[in-house]
Every structure is written in structure tokens, then in C-alpha cells.
Design a protein around this nucleic acid. Sequence first.
DNA 1: GAGTGGTCTAGACCACGGG
DNA 2: CCGTGGTCTAGACCACTCA
Lengths: 244, 244
Amino acid sequence: MTANTLKRQPLYVQVKQLLLQRMGEGEWRAHDALPSEWELAGELGASQGTVRKALSELESAGLLYRQQGRGTYVAPVPGDWGDAVLLTPGLFSEPPDELAREFLGLSRLNASEDIADALQLRRLAPLLRIRQLWRWHGAPVALDDVLLPAEAFEGMEARWLRNSAGVYATLQQRFGVRLRVRSEQFRAEMLPREEAGLLGVTGMVADVPALCLLRLSESMDGRPLEWRQRYCLTHQLAYTVKHD
Amino acid sequence: MTANTLKRQPLYVQVKQLLLQRMGEGEWRAHDALPSEWELAGELGASQGTVRKALSELESAGLLYRQQGRGTYVAPVPGDWGDAVLLTPGLFSEPPDELAREFLGLSRLNASEDIADALQLRRLAPLLRIRQLWRWHGAPVALDDVLLPAEAFEGMEARWLRNSAGVYATLQQRFGVRLRVRSEQFRAEMLPREEAGLLGVTGMVADVPALCLLRLSESMDGRPLEWRQRYCLTHQLAYTVKHD
DNA sequence: GAGTGGTCTAGACCACGGG
DNA sequence: CCGTGGTCTAGACCACTCA
């Protein structure tokens, strides 16, 4: 890599950033093959070992997958549910159930202090709010409020969200932005009235506890771009996170 | 590595396993320096690059930490709380609060079907149960039930647990077993009566929602060895998991 | 200055997948 | 068979820490 020093980043980091950029620009779609290690090495003027280190780190970050004897491929966008899985409680065996996602609406509001702080915006900054409902075997099990900085996603349209694989997929397809989870926060709460209505918990039933998940996500270059709140009903299903 | 092939594992994996074994046998204590890459390479008959790959993987697994210009050191045993942190809710800024751990008791019981299954034991297998309470600024915030296969930890004594940095630290010190989290499961529940008593939630107060965490941990060679259930009060504090 | 880990290179061989 | 990624080696230079 001739004279492309910039800020004296190690070469393999520069290779990573360059590949991330090209992936962000949509040069390759999910499951497309990247050039081989030797081709990239030639293109970029680095050795094959250096390219390998960059590719390996992108693989462990979940952006690529590699198969011996075949090649290196762009990994599909992770679903909105994240790495977690809904499970029947008490069991650690895992039938990865398909959850159905239902888009409820797109609206605008202004950031509260907490949210502005988390997203590194000024107070009352305009936000987009996306609501969606998760169903498992037809029954509502979770409700999402997704908050995005309006400035970063100007031109967002509800129909993009209605017919898509999820918010993350839409952001990547329409804005070339790929998000990753920075941190998640769990809390047990009594389900608020409004959310209870949307989740179909109505009437005389005693108050219901809900798992409240907050998730802060960022772009690949580290800017926080999504604040998500999820209310999960966990009578029937638990929220599982696998490690490694 | 001359003729130590075993089952045709890659050399760097064999190096990892050998180092894990020697760490498990207590050859080094926390913050002890390991031999340098070149010394290990000489000892084990591998190249320095291969040793480096093994060490790097152990570092990213959190078992070692390395400092340029100094050396490679054994990482301290993680606390019982795991990678998660208790936080004031709504905020993603992080004052890593010290939690006080209070040992409540050591008892024996027999495995239920679920737990025997998760720990890969026969039904009704004998278990050790360790109870402990977590306090934050004096107030109880969480209660742990730790279940361990009695067979694997015969001779466990309550006083070991009373005066220690936690269950994981005791297991490593007394039995040479280091655990890592395999999966965690979250659920919102109404706090059961017994746990409410231990957590100091008494009297006329309306029922309280609790975050119920299940954690399955395994030894470094992949045997499931701990089933843990934790009830967390999350009115004041939330349960946070950082990624990366 | 000596010793450590961090990066980078060049070359070798192996294991796997597919034509 | 070829091309791919996976492992392993040897050697070079750099950046950092510490005596």
C-alpha cells in the first residue's frame, strides 16, 4: 500500500476500512464472493498474509464468512432481532423459531435528554420512530420502538419498511449503513398501558411483567445511530443470548 | 512440535490446549507473566508465529492479556457477576459500580429434569447449591442460586465460599476449574415469595417484577458445569451487556 | 540497549471444493 | 486438476517498556 498512510494505521486496518467502505457502497451484495486473498493483495499492494488478517477480523465481526476451497463471501445482514433468540423457558436446547415481524408505523418526534445523550445529538433533535410488532405462532410477543437520527436518514419512507426484512436490512439497502450492537440493557417492568394494548394484553387480566430491552447500535465507524426499546412478553418464551 | 500429533489438531490449537492445561493446573497465578513467545516456541518446538496465534486467541478469549514491550500475563478470574454490569436505568453511560457479595449458604439437592438435562447429568443427580446475595449501597439487588454437579466438586466447604472473591474464583483456586459462560437467558417474572423475602421485599408492597437470568457455564473443555439462576430487582438498576 | 509484543513479508505445504 | 482458504515457518523491522 504505497503512500496511503493517513494516520499511521497498521496496513491490515487500512485494508479492513477499505473493504468496509466498499461493502458499504454496495459493491457486493449478500453472499457475493469477494476477490481471493491473492487478488486483493495484488490490488492493494499488500501481502497475502496481511489481507488474510484483515479478512479474518471481518469474519469474526460477522461481516464475512469464508469457506476453505471456495472463497470469501459477504455475510447477510443480521435480522432485527439481533443475536438473541426467543425460547421456551427453562430449556437450553434451541429450536430457532421464526418470528414474524409486523411494521406498525413511522413517525417523527424530538429526542429526550437521555436519548439525545446516547445518540450524541443535541437536545430535542428530530428523530424517526419506527414501531414494529413481533408475533410467534400468531400471538404478539414483543414490541419495538426504533429511534433513528432524522438527519442521518432523511427521505425514509414507510413502504420501504413495510416490505422488507427489517430495519437493519432497510438501512443497509437504502442508506448503505450497516449497524452493529454496542450495548444492551435488560430490565423487568410492568407492561405500560399503551404497549399492553399493542401487545394484545387487555381487560381484566392482572398486570403483566415484561422484559424491557434497550439497545444502542452504531455504524461500522463507531457513530451511535440507533436507540431501540423492546418490550417482550416472557410468560411463554424467554430471551436467550448465546456466547461464542 | 515433533511427533505430538494426537488427532491432527492444528499445531496452534495444541499449543492453546497445552497452555490452558498448565493454567488450569495453577502453574501461573493471575497477573503472572508467561514465558515470552520465543521461549514458548523453543520449549514446544513450534515457531514464534504459531505461538503468537495461540496466545492471541487466548487473549481474545479473555484468559490472557498482553502488553507491547512488557509481556503476556494471566488474566484475573472474572467476577461472579459476569460481563454484565448493573446500571442506573435509561443511561448508557457507565459508572462500573462495585457490588457487594454476601454468601448465604451451601446445601445439597437433586437435579430436576431440566437442570440434569442442561448439565448433562442423570436425573436426580446430586447437586451442590450455593446461594448468594448482591447488595448495592447496602440494599439487596439480586439473588443467586448456583447449582453445580456434586460429583465434580466433592469436598466443597462453605468457608471457602464465605471468604472468597466469588464462586468462579473458588472453583479455580480449589478445583483448578475455570468456567466460561455458554449462554444466558432472560425473563421477566413476578418475584416469588421466598426470593422476595431474601431480597427484603416484604409486606404490603404490591407484587414486584424481577429480571430472571439463567446462565449455563462450561469448563474450558466444554463440559457444562454450572447452572445459575439470578433474580434481579431492576427498579433502580438495569442489567447491561456490552458487546465487543 | 536488551527484550518484549505488533506488523509485514515471502514462501511452503496441506485440505477442501468444484469443474 | 486448479484455485481457494488454512496452517506453518523464517526472518525483518517497528514500537514500547524497563533497567
